[in-house]
């Protein structure tokens, strides 16, 4: 199967600390890859390297064309002084979308993420849930082949979470790929309840890839403290 991301021997050091240690994995087209790890495990570093915004020390990182990547960050990275409509227009234009493409895509993305009533509101004044939905809307606006999501559900409401998960699954169902980083186990099980899912367990910079059932069995008797303390035994 055609891969969208292939990482081999990736090592990243920040100061004297090894953040990613010889990470190897591959994500094929049409897959949802859940990157699970607790705080400080290196999720954000890995996502930022995949997005091409952070240099790395050694290894090989192959990803699809940069213009085919959509990114949602923990901070959502929205233009807070612009309205929802203006954010979508601006980011669409910055991604090189034509006015016709924007006219076609914006209404469908707005509808999918239930942002119709917020179009004229400034992004900075929206509740967290709406900001999360807007961030995802901006990221999938140009229908990118690779969607990178970095732990966006840490704040927000259950309704927004449901909409976001549903939209992400729909994006993947179109043959696109998503790498979803999270530090919450229930979120992993929630997302894993669909086809074409793989889970990467990132512990102290070491990544192991599992199928959902295997991961569920692995996590049965392991607490976050256990993972943080004895990560090398996972």
């Amino acid at each position: 199967m055609e891969y969208v991301v292939r990482v081999s021997g990736l090592t990243q050091c920040i100061a004297d600390e090894i953040v990613l240690d010889n990470v190897n994995f591959q994500v094929d087209a049409g897959k949802l890859f859940i990157l699970f790890g607790y705080s400080g495990s290196g999720k954000t570093t890995l996502i930022s390297i995949l997005a091409g915004v952070q240099a790395y020390k050694s290894g090989t990182v192959e990803v699809c064309d940069r213009r085919d990547i959509g990114l949602v960050t923990q901070q959502y990275s929205l233009f807070t002084h612009l309205t929802v409509q203006e954010n979508l227009q601006a980011i669409g234009m910055m991604k090189g979308m034509s006015p016709q493409e924007l006219n076609h895509r914006v209404p469908s993305v707005v509808e999918a993420l239930q942002l119709e009533n917020a179009l004229r509101h400034r992004a900075g004044r929206l509740p967290w849930g709406a900001q999360q939905r807007l961030a995802l809307a901006c990221a999938i606006l140009n229908n990118p082949r690779l969607l990178l999501v970095d732990d966006i559900l840490s704040r927000g409401d259950p309704e927004s979470t449901e909409v976001i998960v549903r939209s992400t699954r729909a994006h993947v169902a179109q043959g696109n790929t998503c790498i979803w980083a999270t530090g919450r186990l229930p979120e992993v099980f929630d997302l894993a309840a669909s086809d074409h899912v793989e889970i990467g367990l990132l512990v102290k910079g070491n990544l192991t890839v599992h199928q959902p059932q295997e991961f569920a069995a692995l996590m049965q008797d392991r607490t976050p403290q256990h993972l943080k303390r004895n990560g090398d035994t996972v």
Binding site: A15, V53, A55, Q74, S77
Partner: peptide, 27 residues
């Protein structure tokens, strides 16, 4: 456009300036 994290010396200097050693930890 691509951040280069402080690998050695700078990472030791940053805390002295009141900055986190890894200022790229969170976006």
């Amino acid at each position: 456009k691509t951040d280069r994290p402080p690998y050695r010396l700078i990472a030791r200097v940053y805390p002295l300036l009141g900055k986190p050693a890894n200022r790229y930890a969170n976006w």
